[in-house]
């Protein structure tokens, strides 16, 4: 993610990073609509209050997204049964643009099959551009645990791709 300078237009910054933010938000939300809500809330908070802070904005944005997502989950838990059905789109809605390369498409499909705790580490590292130390802080786990989950995830993805390729 590029630095968010004070004089930069939010549209340009969001056009560059919005998709990644949404994928990160999707890890902690039950539906696409919830992810959009979380991204909106987190991005507005970041852009208005945090973009002037020194350093790389990645961790700030991810923290803001995670906080918004957890708040939404807590609110959703108190809501009606209507909200419980939205988890179904986890399996049906693609998180990525369609890929012509079958290997990439297989990888995109396989990512969803990972256990959530491994998948969020992968997403935070690849699309959040966070280190294992930063991932550990975000998820309240040790860096070693984050790295371990990453290794398990890579191993699992490799197996998924191999199986799908052979299918």
């Amino acid at each position: 993610m590029s630095d968010a300078h004070a004089d930069q237009d939010w549209r340009a910054w969001f056009a560059e990073n919005g998709a990644r933010l949404r994928l990160i938000a999707r890890q902690w939300t039950r539906s696409e609509a919830d992810a959009d809500d979380v991204v909106q809330e987190a991005f507005v908070r970041f852009w208005k209050h945090q973009r002037h802070l020194p350093g790389n904005p990645n961790a700030l944005v991810v923290t803001s997204i995670r906080r918004a997502a957890l708040d939404l989950l807590r609110r959703s838990d108190r809501r009606s049964v209507r909200e419980q059905a939205v988890g179904a789109d986890m399996e049906t809605v693609s998180w990525f643009e369609p890929e012509a390369d079958p290997r990439l498409q297989s990888l995109a499909d396989s990512l969803k099959l990972l256990p959530p705790e491994q998948r969020e580490v992968v997403v935070l590292k690849v699309w959040g551009d966070l280190t294992f130390d930063q991932i550990g802080e975000q998820l309240s786990i040790s860096p070693n645990t984050a790295a371990s989950r990453w290794r398990y995830a890579m191993e699992a993805l490799r197996k998924h791709i191999t199986v799908r390729t052979h299918d």
């Binding site: 056009a15 919005g18 998709a19 990644r20 933010l21 949404r22 994928l23 959009d36 991204v39 909106q40 693609s94 998180w95 990525f96 643009e97 890929e99 290997r103 990439l104 990888l107 995109a108 990512l111 992968v122 690849v126 699309w127 993805l157």
Partner: peptide
């Protein structure tokens, strides 16, 4: 390869 995947942008 993962980094090459393109997440879908917000609507």
């Amino acid at each position: 390869a993962l980094a090459a995947l393109r997440p879908r942008p917000p609507g």
